[in-house]
Every structure is written in structure tokens, then in C-alpha cells.
Design a protein around this nucleic acid. Structure first.
Lengths: 370, 370
DNA sequence: TATCAACACGAAAACGTTTTCGCAAGGTGT
DNA sequence: ACACCTTGCGAAAACGTTTTCGTGTTGATA
């Protein structure tokens, strides 16, 4: 920029022609974004007139509107988002904080969020918490200074383990809306989107029982994961309601990363098992491979059902029967809840918190009979 | 907000005490974000003084700095990001546009971008183009009005097919920096991050040849994908340099979605094949499953190598030998190139465009011998 | 002819910062 | 006693919008 504004003001009365030429050259050579002020100056009207004309205000004559809009189009005017945000105190951004992105379920949820958000004119800023409480806190801190109108998040493993929700309370205090999905907590009152984990596990175990299986194992994670907790409850409930004893030995708890083949081998060595429910598809496919390696026939001698109907389930051998969690729908729902809340806050209308359940469905493949 | 600013100005001289009390109550009850103006008013200094004090300017006395910073801390002052962005004309946001997010490779790249960006204080706004040119254009349009300091993108399938880069030229004209990765084009001059596709394919085929394989097939996509193109070149080059004829029949082109088992079956029916190179892991695992279903032993009778060393390769049966593309490193590199360029633009230093190559490495599993 | 809407538009405040420049008080050197 | 420099701070412009309110010019009505 060669001419600072002070000089421009001075020039204004004296050399409008020169300015005109200057703006043309400047624009065509460097094609920087043009502003209301420049349009106003060019057309010899005020900034307010231009603004109103572009917004089709009926305060402005048809004539002027045409002129301004034509000019704006010609110079490819795009209103500066930042200025609008600053003025209106809303960014049209939403922050998404998820524990992991290299993970089928979370990416499908993200897809849902992104799609709905885009439809509503919102942009999505994503941070990965890496299952770490600290990172989760920092990420929220980074976004809560007006970068974002609201949050969508799934709690990290550490957060669930530590049961520490101070950062959520701070966001609550700042009046920033947020939605929890999948990994949630009862300690915080907010909009939530859940899977019917218990029911889904119940369905899966029922499938085994209907196929005549009686020695049903559960491979799960540590208990503090809200989803594993729910699924375990469903597993127990199904066995109970079929009058079968619950053998704690048949429940194997694994860490979410670094699977150890030995542990699983000894688990299958020590127990007599004819069906296995796993709380995710990695456990299921990994387990399936191990038992097949030992000569066990899947599904004839042992059936498998997993959760998270992702790419692994689809291309495993045999194809893994899996509870599909419909991540896309969850994402859409989470985004809808959040954006609804943001916009109703704007209109100062009170709205009770909602909890939406997305029903899982069983996708049957070759790892189960029938 | 009960008191608009005009009234405040009026009140200022008359009832400072009342204002003080008001601000206290207001802050403690609603905990809204506090601004420089309010701190200034409270402390009886000017806005500029507060701003400078918070930035540790040496124009301000040690005394005042202490006072201001203590007060700011007490009231948990956080500078408004939007205002700073507006003033400084940079958002500290980068836009990432990828064809697909439910895809191992792209998510790992994303992880790299996100991690480096966060380290540098940048936020990441992600849009999915869904392999569609139109969506790609719209997404860029949506972000190019000052929402973002620069872009990182991989071209969509449609864009590569149509060979239409008008949207990139617009961004170029707007002087917004951008980096292309993986799916790139020679038609646009900019920073790029690539895989050594040709070399990698060469390596893979060499592996087959060294194992004594002679009837090597290639399962790839349509030719307009820059990556497939490179990999095919490598495949041909390897065969040539080993003095083997290139049989066009041994090259199968599949669509990237909706795999049709029949097509693949007839491909294997009609040809005598003892090794298969696939341009992604889905093709490889899918193909491996099909031939195994026909009784072919992998790797003894037929070896497989795929690209994209993802979760599928790891948990397939047998484990798939795969060219790892080191998505994380690519992401980091892309983010680094972009942020470097953004910041050197800011300092008005000229910088030639760079093309960085991330070397692939072969991760050997059970689908190849030795 | 005086009155009054309706119409078209402009001035200016506001959003929350950063930064330049100016100014007063006090100290230092001749 | 004078000029001059340093220190510490404030006024105001600027970033690019939106929006409220005021105002001058019409044309119609009484």
C-alpha cells in the first residue's frame, strides 16, 4: 500500500481522478481484496450506503443498489469475515475436539459434523486431544477466546479416568455452548449424543445365544470408558436374562493400544469359549486372526462380533459381523444440537438440554452363523 | 449488557464508584469475557497503557505493569482473537482441504498438519471435498475471504480428471499461500509435498523380481490420478530394467469405490499371475481375500504388496506387505512449508517454491516371502 | 402556502485490539 | 537559567464491517 489513509483524505477533494486511476491500476496489478471504503470512494457515496446496498436494504434506491452491486461484482468484492465476526460477536466457527483422528468411528462422526456445519455456514476447527487430559484442556483454552461459537467433543481416555471436568465447567461459565458425544459424563449438564451401548451389546449377545452359543466371552477395555462400561452392562444383562451364569474369567480387559498376542493366547488357552463379543473392531479382528492361527474355525467353532463397523470389519477374513454405530448420523446430530443451541442463545430463548440416542444396528457378515 | 457505552461515558465523571461496583457484580455473576476497555476504566488508566502493560512494553513503568497484569489475571482476561486478527490482518488459521477424511492416509497427514500447526500457534479448519471439483471450489471460496492465512490441499479426483485449476489460480492471485500434497499438478507453481511414487513402485516390483516372480500384475485406478500415474511408471520401469516384457493385460484399472468382485475374478481367471502390486491397501486386501477364496496360497503361490500402510494392512490375513507413505511426516512437512511461506510473506522476503519428497519405505509382512 | 410523510442517503458509533505520535514532568548537562 | 533528553502515559487512528439516527429533498395533502 503506497498511500496511507491520511494522505488519501487529503487528496480526496483535490485529485479524485488520480485516485480513480490509482485504484484501477492497483486493483488490476495486485488484485488485493477490495473493501467497502474503496467502493464507496470510487462510486462517490458513503460507506453506509454501500453496505446497505450490498445487503439489499430498502433504504437505498434501486438505482444505487444496481450500481453498487455491479461494481462489487466487477471487483470481486468479498466481505471480510473477521470484521463481521468482530461486529456481530459470532465467528461461525465450531471447535471439534476428539481423542483420535486416525480412527474410523471418529472420522465418520467428523464427516457428519463437517457436512451439517457447512450446510449451516459454519466452519470446523479440529483439535486432537490424543487421549490426553492436558491436551484437551489446552485445546479448549486455545479456542475459548472467541475463536469459536461452541464445542463438540468426545472425552479423552485420561479425562474419563481422572474424572476431571474443570475445563468443561470453565466453558460452562463462559457461556460457551458445547455438545458431548460418545464418550460423555453424567457430571456435566449439557447436550449429549449417545449410542445405546448397553442395548447394542445386549442385541449382540442375544444373537450368539440364539445361535446356541453358551460360552460367550467379552473382550473389552478398562472400565472407566463410558462406552465399554455400557457395553459390559449389556453383556451381563443378556446373560442374566437368559439365565446363564456370568463368569468373570470370560471377560478380558485390554489396553487400547499395544495389543499383546500372548495375553490373548493365554486367555483362549485357559477358557473354553464359543463366541466372542469385542468392544471394537481391532480387538475382534486381531482376536479372530489369532484363534484362526490356532486352527479354530470362524464362525463354525467360534463366532465373533465387534463394535465400530469400519473398514477392518468389511475387509477382514472372514468378514466381521459388527455393531454399526452410525457415526455420520451422530456427527450430524451433534452439530445440529450445537448450532441450534448457539442460535437460540443468540435469540435469548431458554432451551433444556437434550440427550439424543443414536441406535446401533447389527451388520451381519461371515464371522457369525446364519 | 445493561449500560450502553454512551451512558457510560456520561457516568464516568459522575459516578466512578458505582461503575466499579457494577463491574464487579456483573463480572462475578455472568463471568463474560473482560476487555481492555474495562480494565482501563477500572484501573483509571488508558486503554493503550493497559495494552502495552500486558505486552510488557518498556514504555510502561514496572509498577503499572504489575498492577495491570495482576488485575488481568484476577479477572482472567483473554485478548479477543478476532480483534487481533482484524488489526494484524492474519488469522493464524490454516485451511485444509482433502478429498476424503475416512481414509487412513489422509487422517495421518491431517495429524501431522494439526500437530505442527498447533505447535506454531495455528488453528486448522478442515473441509472435505469428497472427490468433487465443485465442492473443492466452494470450500476454497468459503475460506478465502480472510478466514484463513493459507491452504494445504490434495486435489480431488474430479479436479485431476477435469484438469481444471481455475480456483487455484484465483487463490494465487489473491496472494494467499498454499501447499499441495500427494495429489498435485504440474500446472500450478507452488510449494508441494510428494511421495516418490515411481521409485516406491520400482522398489516393490524389484522385491517381487528378487523373489523370482515373473508374472507381476498391477491393480491400479484410472490414470488421471497423479499418484497412480507415478506408480504405474515405476512398475513399468522395473519390469523394463529387468528385461521383462510389459503385458498390458496384467494391468487392471478399478474405480476407487464400489469394488466389483466379478471383475477381479475374471482378471485372475484370464491371466497367469504370481505377484500383484496394488496402488492402495483396499485393492490389495480385497484381491488377496478373493484369490485365497479360490484356494490360492498367499504368499507361496502369489505375493501381494499394497500402498498405504494402514490399519487394514496391519490386521489383514495374512498381514499385507505395504509401502508406507509416512503420512504424518508429509503433514508436518506441508504445514511447515505453508507456515514458513506465510511468515516470510509477512516479512516481505522472497522465497522460491519448494518441492519436498517424502521417501516411502517397504513394511514387510506375511504377504511376501522372505 | 404551510405541513408532513416518504425516500435516499450520510455521519458516526461500535466491536477489541495495536501502534504511532504527542505531551507533560522531571532529571541532566552546560 | 536554559536547552535537552528520558520516562510514563494518553489520544487517536486504524483494521472492515453493521446499524442507528439524523437530515435534506421530494411530492402530496390540507
Amino acid at each position: 500500500m503506497i498511500f496511507p489513509n491520511k494522505i488519501l483524505t487529503l487528496l480526496d477533494g483535490i485529485l479524485p481522478k488520480i485516485w480513480s486511476i490509482y485504484i484501477c491500476i492497483w486493483h488490476y496489478t495486485m488484485r488485493r481484496k477490495i473493501t467497502l471504503k474503496q467502493i464507496a470512494r470510487e462510486l462517490g457515496v458513503s460507506i453506509s450506503t454501500v453496505s446497505k446496498a450490498l445487503n439489499n436494504s430498502k433504504e437505498i434506491s434501486e438505482d444505487t443498489i444496481q450500481k453498487v452491486q455491479a461494481f462489487a461484482k466487477l471487483y470481486n468484492y468479498r466481505p471480510n469475515n473477521l470484521a463481521i465476526s468482530l461486529k456481530s460477536n459470532r465467528t461461525k466457527n465450531i471447535g471439534v475436539i476428539i481423542p483420535d483422528i486416525v480412527h474410523y468411528f471418529f472420522t465418520t462422526v467428523f464427516r457428519g459434523i463437517e457436512q451439517y456445519a457447512k450446510m449451516k455456514g459454519y466452519k470446523v476447527i479440529t483439535y486432537v486431544s490424543d487421549e490426553s487430559l492436558t491436551k484437551e484442556v489446552i485445546n479448549m483454552e486455545l479456542l475459548s477466546n472467541g475463536s469459536v461459537d461452541g464445542f463438540i467433543m468426545a472425552l479423552s481416555a485420561e479425562t474419563q479416568k481422572a474424572n476431571d471436568f474443570e475445563h468443561l465447567r470453565r466453558i460452562e461459565n463462559l457461556q460457551i455452548p458445547f455438545v458431548l458425544f460418545d464418550r460423555v459424563t453424567d457430571e456435566i449438564d449439557c447436550d449429549k449424543v449417545l449410542i445405546n451401548d448397553q442395548e447394542a451389546a445386549y442385541m449382540a449377545v442375544t444373537k450368539f445365544l440364539d445361535n446356541g452359543r453358551k460360552k460367550i466371552a467379552l473382550i473389552t477395555t478398562a472400565e472407566y470408558f463410558s462406552v465399554s462400561h455400557g457395553r459390559e452392562k449389556g453383556y451381563r444383562q443378556a446373560l442374566r436374562s437368559y439365565g446363564l451364569p456370568i463368569q468373570e474369567d470370560l471377560i478380558l480387559r485390554l489396553p487400547i493400544t499395544d495389543l499383546d498376542a500372548e495375553v490373548i493366547h493365554t486367555f483362549f488357552d485357559k477358557n473354553d469359549i464359543d463366541a466372542v463379543l469385542c468392544v471394537n473392531e481391532v480387538f475382534a479382528v486381531y482376536g479372530m486372526n489369532l484363534v484362526q492361527q490356532r486352527g479354530v474355525k470362524v464362525p463354525e467353532e467360534m463366532e465373533f462380533i465387534g463394535f465400530t463397523d469400519g473398514i477392518l470389519s468389511k475387509y477382514a477374513k472372514p468378514g466381521l459381523t459388527s455393531m454399526s454405530q452410525h457415526g455420520f448420523e451422530m456427527g450430524v446430530m451433534a452439530a445440529r444440537l450445537l448450532i441450534d443451541r448457539i442460535e437460540s442463545n443468540l435469540r435469548k430463548v431458554e432451551k433444556p438440554f437434550q440427550t439424543e440416542i443414536i441406535a446401533s444396528t447389527l451388520v451381519e457378515r461371515e464371522s457369525t452363523l446364519n
